[in-house]
């Protein structure tokens, strides 16, 4: 199962990169970036998965003594938790700049923004 999820994550990264590189509309590029973001998170979570083990939460079913033999790796999950929250912050930032760029030029076509081109 981890293999399938990991392959899907890699494919989503490729899809997102392709979309971000080929689309000319800034909003579509940002959407493609979020797809790639999801792919990266999926790969990291899939790496932490181990077959036949359960979530890293101690309760009646998983006592503290036998936790090391029963739970999966909690560290990638903590990393992905951080990554998702930062991801939405970055997306909001990009969208705010999109609004500003549209206000300036009245277009979202990336080819029209030529000030820094050389």
């Amino acid at each position: 199962m981890a293999y399938i999820a990991m392959a899907t994550g890699f494919i989503l990264i490729l899809i997102g990169l392709f979309g971000a590189l080929t689309n000319r509309n800034i909003l579509r590029m940002i959407v493609a970036f979020t797809v790639a973001d999801t792919g990266v998170n999926m790969v990291i979570v899939a790496i932490g998965y181990m077959h036949g083990r359960t979530a890293p939460i101690l309760d009646v079913a998983v006592s503290a003594a036998e936790a090391a033999a029963r739970i999966i790796d909690p560290v990638p999950q903590a990393l992905v938790l951080t990554a998702i929250v930062i991801g939405v912050g970055v997306t909001a930032l990009m969208l705010a700049y999109t609004y500003k760029l549209y206000e300036k030029k009245r277009t979202l076509d990336i080819a029209q923004f030529t000030e820094l081109k050389w």
Binding site: N41, V45, V80, I84
Partner: peptide, 18 residues
């Protein structure tokens, strides 16, 4: 999919935020 991968914390975050 995160829920199936035994990561309920990440699943909640992704559903609420992502």
């Amino acid at each position: 999919q995160y829920l199936l991968l035994a990561a309920p914390d990440v699943a909640m975050t992704e559903a609420a935020i992502g």
